[in-house]
Structure formats: structure tokens, C-alpha cells
Design a binder for these strands. Structure first.
Lengths: 149, 149
DNA sequence: TTTGCCGTTTACGTCCACGTCAACTATTTT
DNA sequence: AAAATAGTTGACGTGGACGTAAACGGCAAA
């Protein structure tokens, strides 16, 4: 690792910023993907001239997006969640609605946790059973060798 | 619930069987979906004439498929898993390979569990914070009323 | 017999999440 | 000045997981 000779040394006017390439490398996704997320309203980087400038907030969102994806949420769902979060600073009505949505998401996650643990159990049973079979085979092979000697 | 006047009373020659419609209702999916899974090699019902007959094995697989989907596995992945499971009755080489695949899946699930619990934590923080805001608002509203009286 | 209902195959359509050029701009390195 | 590197928009392509319609067969109740 040599010094990170930043080809576009942004003067960073207040707070850390990232280029699209930096984020792509950090999270191991393509720049296309990042632009697509912006297209879908999930990210809103500022601009330095024509180029996109991502701040820590965008980076945090990106992290959330990727985790959400691994959990099977769609981009649209996450966009709604973000929008809700942004709007929910104020009116009680909004806050109550937001709470109900959170509760809904929680139910989803609980279901998923059940699925996951059930799958984990079955997987470990398969694993154990498979190992048993292997050990048995090795014993039999040992027997055969002793017979032959 | 009246008696389930089965319109096509299969004589069930050995073991419980299901029609495609029964399974669709039970799991709340369309028959199209079930046929599609067969197309992709995930199910292999027998036939009674032209119609499909599903046995308990197929039903169990269907359950696995749906759970797998909720966890983000692709149909292709699950097909491979099933194929592997079917072939892994014998040769030690196969068994070892199967074990390695199981280990891989386990890693996937572990990652997913981390994601899930991290998300759950953040969600509950959001929930709590949101409730705080609401309570504060209500206190303020109470103050305002007392001021006015 | 006709009406319903369930089932069948074949084929094309759709939505999501990007991939893949193409053509261009801007800056840095040689 | 030329080449390399990173970025831009725009448009079309793709793979996965089905939806949707068309046209048909078989059986059961009215």
C-alpha cells in the first residue's frame, strides 16, 4: 500500500467527503450501482462542479442500503424508510405513523429471525448427519484393510 | 368450514398426496409459481394422468424453498443444494464436498444474523427516540393548556 | 347438456437491480 | 501535447422470479 495519491484532492470544505470511486472500493460495489441508488432517491450527494461529493451521511446510508439488501428489503422500501425518517421531525401524526411502520419492520425481522434459526438448526443437523456417514465409511474402510492384511 | 368436498378425490395410492391447488392455498402462492419451481428443477411431482401429484417430500421442499426465499437465497442456489443432498448418499468425496458447501451456507447465515441483529438494535433505538419525541410533545402541549387556563 | 371449477401447456409481458457500452469532460501524470 | 485516470449522462441489455392471457381437457353438480 503506497500513499493514497488522491487523483482528485478535494479541498473538503467542512467535514470528510468521499468520491464515488472511494465508496465503490470501500463497499465493493460498482459506481454504476451508487449512481443507480441516487436515481432511485436513496442518496443525494452534493456536487463539486459536475462530480458527486458524498458526505458521511451518504456513506452511512449506503451502509444501511447494503445491509438492507442482504436482508431482502427492496430499494423502494428503504427509500420510503429514509423519506419517513427525514419527515418525522415534528408533527405528532407523522411520528405515530412512523412508529407503526417501525413496528411493521420489526415483525418482518422477527419472522426472518425465526426462518434463520430454523434453517440454522436444520443445517447443523445435516452437517452432523453427514459427518456421521463419513466416520462410518472410514470405519468400514479400516475394517476392510484389517481383513486384507 | 364445511367438509372439504374434494372435487378431484384422488385415491391416494400409498401416502398422502396434494394437488397443486391445495399447496397453493396452503402456502398462499399461485399455481404458476409452483409450476415454475418445477420448471427450475426444484420440485418433481409425479403424475396422475396429466395432473401433478405432490407427495409429502415435495411439500417439505416447497416449505424449504419459501423459507429460503425469505432469507434471500436464489432458486438456483436451492436447486443446487437439493441436488447435492440427493447425490450425497454414498461416496466420501461427495460427502466432503457437501460438508464444505454446508459450511459456506452457515457463514452466509451467520453474516445475515449479524445484519439482522444490528438492524434490530437500530430499529429499536429509532423506536425509543421516536417515543421520546412524542412524549415531549405531549408534555409541551399540556404546558400550553395550563398556561391558557 | 351446460356451467363451473380445476388443471394443463405455450408464450409473451413485467418489475427489479443493476450491467454494459458509448460518447463525452476534467484533471493529473509523463 | 499525449496518455492515463476518474468521472459524467444516456440508452439499451440482462437475469431472476414470476404475472398474465390464450386455448384447451376432464370431471362434477345443476
Amino acid at each position: 500500500m503506497s500513499t493514497p495519491t488522491n487523483p482528485h484532492p478535494e479541498q473538503e470544505p467542512g467535514g470528510t467527503t468521499f468520491t464515488i470511486g472511494e465508496l465503490a472500493r470501500e463497499f465493493d460495489i460498482t459506481t454504476r450501482t451508487i449512481r443507480f441508488y441516487e436515481d432511485q432517491g436513496l442518496l443525494s450527494p452534493t456536487r463539486s462542479g459536475t462530480r458527486r461529493l458524498y458526505r458521511r451521511r451518504d456513506r452511512a446510508r449506503l451502509k444501511l442500503i447494503l445491509r438492507g439488501k442482504r436482508l431482502g428489503f427492496t430499494l423502494a422500501e428503504m427509500r420510503e424508510a429514509f423519506d419517513l425518517y427525514d419527515e418525522a421531525h415534528g408533527e405528532a401524526q407523522q411520528l405515530r405513523y412512523y412508529l407503526s411502520v417501525l413496528e411493521e419492520k420489526r415483525q418482518h425481522l422477527l419472522q426472518q429471525r425465526e426462518d434463520l434459526e430454523e434453517t440454522m438448526r436444520e443445517l447443523e443437523q445435516s452437517y452432523a448427519h453427514c459427518q456421521q456417514l463419513l466416520e462410518q465409511q472410514e470405519r468400514e474402510r479400516g475394517d476392510a484393510q484389517r481383513m486384507a492384511s
